[in-house]
Design a protein around this nucleic acid. Structure first.
Lengths: 338, 338
DNA sequence: CGAGCCTATGTTATCGATGCCATGTGTAAC
DNA sequence: GTTACACATGGCATCGATAACATAGGCTCG
């Protein structure tokens, strides 16, 4: 009882441990940081004292004196892409934790320069050692440049700042894979429901689609723009359903794909008999809704990890690209032959 | 150029600002903390100096001297429930940010006592001012008790530690709502595919289901246990499909529900004609897959916010319960009458 | 056997903001 | 015209760990 009270009065400090172990505070510090020059016997005494006092290193003091916070800041968008967001977060957290870093999250409510600046400032104020930006930067302001110049930064979507390194997730390839799959099945034209134009992912997938069609000598139809949500897919799907000869659609996300499918079905167009649909993400549900979705899988967890590795890599040679692969299921088929 | 170099050499400190503004460091500190007794004219000079030097408050020093970190720790599970997890995170982050707190994430890879202890230790080491635990505590160890005694803690799932306060999300009610809906439609029996038994949410939903059936004088059939994933729903769905007279199933999550639906359909049982399905979550896709899912909506974002509010509420009177509500869609119908 | 070096440890200054106390005004109250 | 008190500000010690430097043995090598 007394012990509990005493503890809540003041946490033991390194000096307390030093006193109990009969050494200097510096030796305690060395022991805890696995410094090489510590006698095994001394080390044991120190660790015993730590255990006995329930000592816990004071992070703030460590940060202040060492100048390093062992914390990585992660900038996320609050809405949209639940799946990819949490997978990225988990990947970042795992890799960071593995390297002895903590993760500090800053979510922004929308793609707005002011919000972005505030998020970066917040992280800078927290003294993070590095920043991972997992949302697209619409336009890069001076203030953002200032921060990313001082603090190592990796962007996960391809947008660039001075000083920020970029982790490529090959979205062009994703767009190409999806489109080519439809062409290979025999479709003569592929429509596209894209993500919001501010998102680099969206633009790159769209570009991959365009390039793939161009390579096949096909004029791309106008792209329809969604906002990643099933609902926006549904709305664009209603438009697509009004166009008679559409046989293949590439949707920029699984969630939009399901919205499109619903709209098509309500108009009497079945999937994949009348219209084939491919999308990107491969969320857990993709295989279980009906029809099971043909989709380009991207390993977001791995991307999160890779971002951390890139960030912590001193020579920065580590710019790995996370690959994409196609999961073929039942939402695509050859067009009706007649 | 020179400026950028100078900056990267050393960030300006409060003393630098004080010198430029011609006041003491103490006055700068007061100004930045909106202390009442600062002359407007002085305040302006200080703020000008801050602006001019690009001064940024050193968080570590602030934490060290004030003893408060203005950081909240959030413990999450790495896998499962992507939707709820990110919604909770966003809610926590928003509410925390609003109150001037940062959020520090600790994800654990599984429901394991050791992992949980490590996560809590990590947060404690980071010096967080409070902890929100968004995963169930299977068993509470001494070490966990020690930490949650020292640091204010809120658990978001109903498990209890000494000193931790609990934010009720009324899972019993969710189970009851779902089950009652099926009974109201005329079903005479309701089967249940639950979440993992270690999860309090799962146990409470199950209990709500049992109580509701009991109140109607119905003997509950054995519950089938899943792991929240669509795949586990699919496997349990295959079992259910073998039982001839099942007309209604309550699934503990939307993702499992879609797995169940797939399994039933593959066996020639249609939803909702042959079997009605209700679940819990109301993820974005629930309304867009087919059939649109009847499900109990829970506001996870709001829960996250509420957890922060409860945590920061000094008198703790703020133990609000986040309500659940039923979204009726097309996966439920009256049983075939014959 | 002394120069030189490695190992184990201690001493001291320092990081940057804040808490606490002291000081010096202007002004309201008796 | 004191006493008293709110307001505005400065000085100094302090939080707890670490970097940088210092020291004292023990060992190697020529």
């Amino acid at each position: 009882m007394t012990e509990a009270v005493a503890r809540s009065v003041r946490q033991p400090s390194m000096a307390d441990v030093a006193r109990t172990a009969g050494v200097s505070a510096q030796t305690v510090s060395r022991t805890l940081r696995d410094s090489p020059n510590v006698n095994p016997e001394t080390r044991r005494r120190v660790l015993d004292a730590v255990e006995q006092l329930g000592y816990r290193l004071n992070n703030a003091a460590r940060v202040l004196s060492s100048g390093r916070s062992f914390t990585i800041g992660l900038v996320l968008l609050q809405s949209g892409g639940y799946y990819s967001r949490s997978a990225v977060t988990a990947g970042v957290e795992a890799a960071a934790g593995h390297a002895g870093y903590a993760v500090n999250i800053a979510t922004i409510a929308g793609l707005d320069t002011g919000l972005m600046e505030r998020a970066l400032s917040k992280l800078a104020d927290q003294g993070v050692d590095g920043i991972i930006i997992a949302v697209p930067l619409i336009s890069v302001t001076q203030k953002m440049e200032d921060i990313t110049r001082d603090i190592p930064t990796v962007t996960l979507d391809g947008s660039r700042t001075a000083g920020a390194r970029v982790l490529g997730i090959d979205q062009l390839e994703a767009g190409r894979l999806a489109t080519q799959h439809l062409l290979d099945l025999g479709h003569r034209q592929v429509w596209h429901v894209s993500g919001p134009d501010e998102w680099i992912e969206a633009r790159q997938r769209l570009q991959g689609w365009q390039e793939c069609l161009a390579a096949a000598g096909i004029d791309a139809p106008p792209a329809l723009e969604g906002d990643w949500s099933p609902d926006s897919g549904y709305r664009q799907g209603q438009i697509i359903a009004m166009i008679p000869d559409v046989t293949a659609v590439f949707a920029a996300s699984d969630e939009m794909a399901f919205g499109i499918i619903r709209a098509l079905r309500e108009r009497g167009r079945s999937v994949p008999e009348d219209v084939s649909i491919v999308s990107v993400d491969d969320i857990a549900l993709a295989a279980y809704c009906s029809p099971p979705l043909t989709t380009v899988r991207q390993d977001f967890y791995r991307s999160g990890q890779a971002a951390v590795e890139l960030l912590l890599d001193p020579d920065g040679a580590n710019a790995s690209v996370v690959p994409a692969s196609l999961s073929v299921r039942a939402s695509t088929a050859a067009p009706r032959s007649h």
